[in-house]
Simulated scan of single mutants.
Amino acid sequence: MIHSVVDELGRTSPLAHRLVPWWSFTKTVLATLTMRLCDNDKLNLDSKLPKRPFTYRQLLQHTSGLNDYSFLPEYHQAVANSKPSWPVDTLMNKVKVDELRFEPGRGWCYSNLGYLLLRMEIERIYDMALPDITTAFLVKELNLKSAFLVEDLAAFNMLQVGPKGYDPNWCYHGLLAGNIEDAALFLHYLMRGELVSQNALNEMQTLYKLNVDVGERPWTTPAAGLGLMCNRDANLDTVGHTGMGPGSVIAVHHFKLQKPKTVAVFKQCQDQSVVENKAVILARAGS
């Protein structure tokens, strides 16, 4: 297990330079890019996507009604057998993208497919491919030099996690990787209000309360923001995202303490509770 903690002044310790997949923390970056488009009046959060019945807000908060390929047994079988990812059109047909689980805004269902649609909209509006967008944003603007979009088997194998034959394009919305201090720093910058306007940051933290069994995970009042998974109570007020893929998990969370901390924890295992509980321990240490 490796970790990195960023304090309220932006000081990072320890430095863990190993490159790791950020898995679904990528969604927080995509959400931030979306909110930047809103700040620049290039996108309206409550407008519907072209020819779709749901809004950008609903995609960001998983309330669109979309299904997800994680529910398909043949997806899990294909990943287990190291098969290449399906073309996007094939994916859309298999998931039945036009058959919603519920009316938009009338329920909650975690959907990677929703973030694929967001990625496609981001690329359309920016008129750039996501690798170029993330390089310009993360590496050049924010100086998070380790960050990159994993696009092929060779790049994923370089991370030395999970099965050797895993096709990273199964993460259809994109799979960012980098060291964990850069992941923690990204969330630190976001929560300090350095990446989007205060209004946009407030919108990202508008919560949809979840009625879910979290098991051994530390969250007592889990809720979904926009590209953020949150827990808001007097003893544990957090904002961030946990991600899991074949072979490893990562938790990146900001803790709203008297002296705020942003913590990233990575471990090669398949138990999200392990990294999340470790993040809570690290955040509370010395507080």
Rank of each mutant, 00 (worst) to 15 (best):
P73Y: 15
D237H: 05
N231D: 06
A200P: 05
G65N: 06
Q205N: 10
G245D: 08
S248E: 04
T63L: 01
G178S: 15
I281F: 06
N143M: 06
R217P: 07
C269N: 03
R119C: 07
I125T: 09
Y56S: 00
L226C: 12
D39R: 11
L142F: 09
A283V: 03
D237N: 05
L257H: 02
T242S: 09
V275I: 07
G178I: 13
W86M: 02
W23A: 07
H254G: 00
S248R: 02
P21L: 02
K278E: 07
M92D: 13
N81Q: 14
M35T: 02
L60I: 09
V161S: 05
V5E: 00
T135V: 12
D127R: 08
S85K: 12
H76E: 01
A155C: 09
K96Y: 15
V139E: 00
E123R: 10
E216Y: 06
C109V: 07
V275S: 01
Y208A: 07
V265G: 01
L9E: 15
A136M: 14
V150F: 11
I125C: 07
N112L: 00
R52G: 04
R217H: 05
A251C: 05
C38G: 07
F255L: 01
D127E: 11
A279M: 05
V196N: 00
L116Y: 09
P260Q: 02
Y75V: 08
K48L: 03
T63A: 08
H62Q: 01
A136D: 01
K27Q: 13
R192H: 13
V161L: 10
M35P: 03
I180R: 04
V97M: 11
Q61H: 10
N157W: 11
L207Q: 10
G193T: 00
E8V: 12
M158I: 11
Y208M: 09
D237A: 03
L130A: 08
D233N: 12
A78F: 15
L91M: 15
T242K: 02
P218S: 04
G227Q: 03
D233E: 03
P14H: 09
Q268K: 08
G10K: 09
P260I: 00
G105S: 01
R57Y: 10
G240H: 10
N40Q: 13
G174S: 15
L9I: 13
H76F: 13
T55W: 11
C230D: 01
L9R: 13
R119E: 06
V6D: 04
K51F: 11
Q270K: 08
T26W: 13
T262R: 02
N211R: 10
L59A: 13
R284C: 05
G225W: 01
C230H: 09
W23Q: 10
Y69R: 06
R36E: 00
V97G: 04
T135C: 08
P104Q: 03
P168D: 10
K96P: 11
A264N: 00
Q268N: 09
N40F: 10
T206V: 15
D237W: 04
V239R: 00
Q205C: 14
R18S: 12
S248I: 01
S47F: 06
R217N: 03
D237S: 04
S273F: 12
W23I: 00
L210E: 05
D167N: 15
L130Q: 05
S197G: 06
Y69W: 14
